[in-house]
Amino acid sequence: MSARVFAFLNFKGGVGKTTNVVNLAACLAYLRGRRVLVVDLDAQCNSTYWLLRPSEFTHHEAGGSPRSRRRLTTWQIFQDAIEGTRVFDAGAAIFRGVPRNEHGTELVPYLHLLPASVDLLDIEFGVDPPALRRLRPALLRALQPLRSDYDFIFLDCPPHLHYVTQAAVLASDHLIVPYNPDYLSLSGFRVLCRLLRRLDDSFRELRPDHARAEVDALIVSRFRRVGNVYGVAVAELKSQIEQMQSAGLLPSACALLEPPIRDDVKVSESASEHKPVIFHAPDSIASQDYMALTASFLQRFPSSP
C-alpha cells in the first residue's frame, strides 16, 4: 500500500486550505477508518494549532531550545535540504492520534500531524539560488518512507507559490484547490493553473515518473444559499473548468467535489477549540457538508487496497 499525496494549494489566502485539510482528513480518519497524515507547510501553523492546543505543541517540543524545537517540524525537512544534513526524524516529529482530549487521549488514532514552525517564514530568505533549488525535491524525499504508513497524506500549503509550495507540488500525486465562490477566485484560479503549467516543465528531471502538475479537484468553501450570488459563482466555476478541459489546460478528470461547504460559524469556533468540526459540532451544517464531501472525495480518489 502506498499513500496518495494531496497538496491543498491556492496562492489566494482565506479560501479554506487549512479548513479543508483538517476537516476532510478528520472525516476520512474518524468516519472512514483511513490512515491520514496532515503535513503543515504553512508558517502560520494553522493546521498545527487547529489540531493541537498550544500547550500540547509546547509539550511536543518540550525541553529544547528554540533551535532544537524546530527539528520536530516541517522546517527541518527544508533546513536539511539547504544545509545538506539529515537531522529530520519523522518518527519523533509526527504527532500521532490528533486531536486529543484534555486527558491526552487520542480522539482519532488514525489521524497524524507533522507540525509546522513559524520559522518556515525565513526558510527561503538569505539562501543562495543553488540551495533554494534543493528545496524542491526535499519534501518528496522526506515523505517517501512514510507513504507505506498511510492511505492519504494531505499537505497544507502556504498561500503562495514559492519554493515550499513548489516542493509540495513536486511531492504530490494530486493537487486540490480550495476555492471561494467569487470572481476574484475564478480569475486567480486561471492564473494558478498557468503557473502550475510553467512549474511542471521544471519538474520533469526531478521526478520523471511524476504525472503533470495539474489540478485534480476543487472544493468550494464559504458557500451560502442566500439569493443567487453563490449559485451563479459556482455555475461560472463549473463552466470555467469545462472550458479549460476543452482547451487542454485541465485534465478531463478534474472535478468540482460536491457539495460546496456552507459558511458556518461552527467551523471558526472549532478551530479555537482545536478540534475538527465533526467533534466540536457534529450536527452543524459544516459537519454534514464535510461528511458528504468525504464520500465524494473517496469516490473520486479511492485509497489503495
Partner: peptide, 15 residues
C-alpha cells in the same frame, strides 16, 4: 447572466 457567464469564464480575457 449569459453575458456575464461568457465574460467571466473567457479564457482569453481577464487574468
Amino acid at each position: 447572466y449569459a453575458r456575464r457567464h461568457h465574460e467571466n469564464t473567457s479564457l482569453t480575457g481577464g487574468a
